[in-house]
Every structure is written in C-alpha cells, then in structure tokens.
Deep mutational scan, measured.
Amino acid sequence: EQYVVVANYQKQESSEISLSVGQVVDIIEKNESGWWFVSTAEEQGWVPATCLEGQ
C-alpha cells in the first residue's frame, strides 16, 4: 500500500525516518498509536501517519 508524504518530518528517534513532501512510501504496518512503519527506497522506520496521504 503506497502513500504520499504531505508534510516534512525530521526523525527524532533511531527507529524513525525523516520524510520530505512528495516522497512515496510503502506502508508495512499501521499502529493504532498514529505511527506507521514505512519503507522507502533507502530505509525503513516509523513515521507519524499525519504526514501521509493515500494515493
């Protein structure tokens, strides 16, 4: 499942990744806490779901 990044995010923990507007990410896991585990071409990590929008 692919989502587009709609807000920049700077990682704050080692388990997170930074996002840039316009990036496309694959969703691996959706957590009810509002944090999703995603994959980019370069890395995987947790990001806030509020930064993502379905395609």
Rank of each mutant, 00 (worst) to 15 (best):
E1M: 05
E1C: 11
Q2R: 08
Q2W: 04
Q2K: 11
Q2P: 11
Y3C: 04
Y3N: 06
Y3M: 09
Y3D: 08
Y3Q: 08
Y3A: 15
Y3H: 03
Y3R: 09
V4Q: 13
V4H: 05
V4R: 15
V5G: 04
V5T: 05
V5I: 04
V5S: 10
V6K: 15
V6E: 04
V6M: 08
V6A: 15
V6L: 07
A7N: 11
A7Q: 10
A7R: 11
A7S: 12
A7W: 05
N8F: 06
N8W: 03
N8M: 05
Y9S: 03
Y9H: 04
Y9G: 01
Y9F: 14
Y9M: 03
Q10A: 13
Q10F: 06
Q10G: 05
Q10V: 10
Q10H: 09
Q10E: 15
Q10K: 07
K11V: 04
K11A: 10
K11M: 10
K11F: 02
Q12T: 13
Q12P: 06
Q12V: 14
Q12F: 13
E13V: 11
E13T: 10
E13H: 08
S14C: 13
S14E: 15
S14A: 09
S14Q: 04
S14K: 14
S14V: 14
S15R: 14
S15E: 08
S15D: 14
S15W: 12
S15H: 15
E16I: 02
E16K: 08
E16L: 01
E16D: 07
E16C: 03
E16N: 07
I17M: 12
I17L: 12
I17W: 01
I17P: 01
I17E: 00
S18R: 02
S18C: 15
S18F: 08
S18E: 02
L19S: 00
L19D: 01
L19E: 01
V21T: 11
V21I: 08
V21A: 12
V21L: 07
V21M: 11
V21Q: 12
V21P: 05
V21K: 15
G22N: 05
G22K: 01
G22L: 00
Q23I: 05
Q23N: 12
V24R: 09
V24W: 11
V24D: 06
V24P: 09
V24N: 13
V25A: 06
V25E: 01
V25M: 01
V25W: 00
D26I: 03
D26E: 10
I27G: 04
I27E: 00
I27Y: 08
I27H: 01
I27W: 03
I27A: 14
I27R: 06
I27C: 13
I27T: 08
I28M: 09
I28P: 01
I28E: 03
E29V: 06
E29W: 10
E29A: 12
E29D: 10
K30W: 02
K30F: 04
K30V: 06
K30E: 08
K30L: 03
K30Y: 14
K30P: 03
N31A: 10
N31V: 08
N31Y: 06
N31M: 13
E32F: 09
E32D: 12
E32N: 11
E32P: 11
S33C: 06
S33A: 10
S33N: 11
S33Y: 11
G34W: 02
G34N: 03
G34Q: 03
G34C: 03
W35M: 14
W35H: 14
W35L: 11
W35T: 07
W35Y: 07
W36I: 09
W36Y: 10
W36D: 04
W36M: 07
W36N: 04
F37S: 10
F37G: 02
F37Q: 14
F37H: 11
F37D: 04
V38T: 01
V38G: 04
V38P: 00
V38D: 02
S39V: 04
S39P: 01
S39C: 13
S39I: 05
S39H: 08
S39N: 13
T40N: 09
T40Y: 08
T40F: 14
T40V: 12
T40Q: 15
A41K: 08
A41C: 10
A41V: 09
A41H: 13
A41I: 14
A41P: 15
A41R: 14
E42R: 13
E42K: 12
E42L: 10
E42S: 15
E42D: 15
E42V: 11
E42A: 12
E43G: 14
E43T: 13
E43Y: 07
Q44N: 06
Q44Y: 04
Q44G: 08
Q44E: 09
Q44R: 13
Q44L: 05
Q44V: 07
G45N: 00
G45T: 02
G45L: 04
G45I: 02
G45H: 01
G45F: 01
G45C: 01
W46D: 02
W46M: 12
W46F: 12
W46P: 00
W46I: 05
W46H: 01
W46C: 06
V47R: 02
V47I: 15
V47S: 03
P48T: 01
P48Q: 03
P48S: 03
P48I: 00
P48W: 01
A49P: 10
A49H: 15
A49D: 07
A49S: 12
T50V: 11
T50S: 12
T50M: 06
T50P: 09
T50H: 05
T50G: 13
T50W: 14
T50A: 12
C51E: 00
C51P: 00
C51R: 04
C51L: 06
C51Q: 04
C51D: 02
L52A: 01
L52D: 00
E53N: 07
E53W: 03
E53C: 09
G54W: 09
G54Q: 15
G54I: 15
Q55I: 10
Q55F: 01
Q55W: 05
Q55G: 07
Q55T: 11
